[in-house]
């Protein structure tokens, strides 16, 4: 079994009395593409910034490449590329100067890769950064994060400012980049369709804790809507484990559960003497159900 690139154990973060993250234990295997999804304020940025060592954890531990995130060595940092939610570009430089600046700091630079991506993404490198649009800045920020060929790429809402065409191109290139060599990607978003395109692992953050974490296909198989039709009136509240929502009206009920499997179906049919129809949900519906 391959060693985890990112590991968290009972990770928690508080700002004063406000708990932003609590009890997060996760791991990421090399080569994974992990999508972190959650509402605004769910703690996505906080989690990513703790993982990258920008912020100390209040509880628990976060590790990157087997090192404590808060005290990452220089060697480990050269293996990380990060695109923050709010870019940290210098307005008074041109895009080209900004990239040269990062190259000087990083010490190594994959110029052919950046040239290729710059052409595909149509990033105007010779204009002052202050005159770039939000989407152009985001693409430039991503180029700056990719230039040193990182093993781990962390993107905090990378496509938020991009139009649909640019988003598609961007994601296609991301897929290609992860496939051409073992590169692990960790990205947060609230655009669920993007997750379906590139992520193989999903973490759903809700209220500062992980509501669900695992492979995308398992998520889609586990979270389903059950349409129950019984012969006798059903109780007002169905005792379903892993139930995200339910509506009961006489002999009919509709419920969304997060731990569906064939065994559970047999148990329910026996318990309620009911006919159960299983309806698969789209990722967007799953996300909404987790936050209802």
């Amino acid at each position: 079994m391959s060693e985890s690139l990112v590991t968290t154990r009972s990770l928690g973060k508080r700002f004063g009395n406000k708990s932003v993250l609590h009890d997060i234990s996760l791991s990421v295997a090399p080569g994974s593409v992990v999508g972190i999804i959650g509402k605004n304020g769910a703690g996505k940025t906080t989690l990513l910034e703790i993982l990258l060592g920008f912020s100390p954890a209040s509880n628990g531990r976060a590790e990157l490449f087997g090192e404590d995130s808060f005290a990452l060595s220089s060697a480990s940092k050269t293996r990380i590329g990060f695109v923050p939610q709010q870019d940290e570009l210098i307005n008074l430089l041109t895009g080209r100067q900004q990239l040269a600046l990062i190259a000087a700091l990083r010490g190594r630079w994959n110029a052919p890769l950046i040239e290729r991506l710059q052409e595909i993404w149509e990033v105007p490198l010779d204009r002052l950064i202050q005159s770039l649009s939000g989407g152009e800045r985001q693409k430039l920020s991503t180029l700056a994060a990719l230039g040193h060929d990182p093993d781990l790429l962390v993107l905090d809402e990378p496509v938020a400012s991009l139009d649909p065409i640019a988003r598609r191109r961007f994601l296609q290139e991301m897929i290609a980049l992860t496939q051409e060599r073992t590169r692990t990607v960790l990205f947060s978003t609230h655009i669920v369709s993007d997750l379906e395109r590139i992520a193989d692992q999903i973490w759903i953050l809700r209220g500062g804790t992980i509501a669900w974490a695992g492979p995308l296909d398992v998520l889609q198989e586990s979270v389903v809507r059950l349409n129950i039709t019984a012969r006798q009136p059903l109780p007002r509240e169905l005792p379903l484990s892993g139930c995200l929502s339910q509506q009961v009206a006489g002999v009919r009920a509709s419920a969304v559960v997060s731990n569906w499997n064939a065994q559970l179906q047999g148990q329910l049919q026996e318990q309620f003497a009911a006919e159960i129809q299983v309806e698969p949900l789209g990722l967007e519906d799953i996300f909404v159900e987790f936050h209802t």
Binding site: Q97, L101, A104, G107
Partner: peptide, 13 residues
């Protein structure tokens, strides 16, 4: 324009 030493890059950032 785009040639930076590490020290210059640090100053600019």
């Amino acid at each position: 324009d785009i040639r930076f030493t590490r020290a210059q890059a640090l100053s600019t950032v």
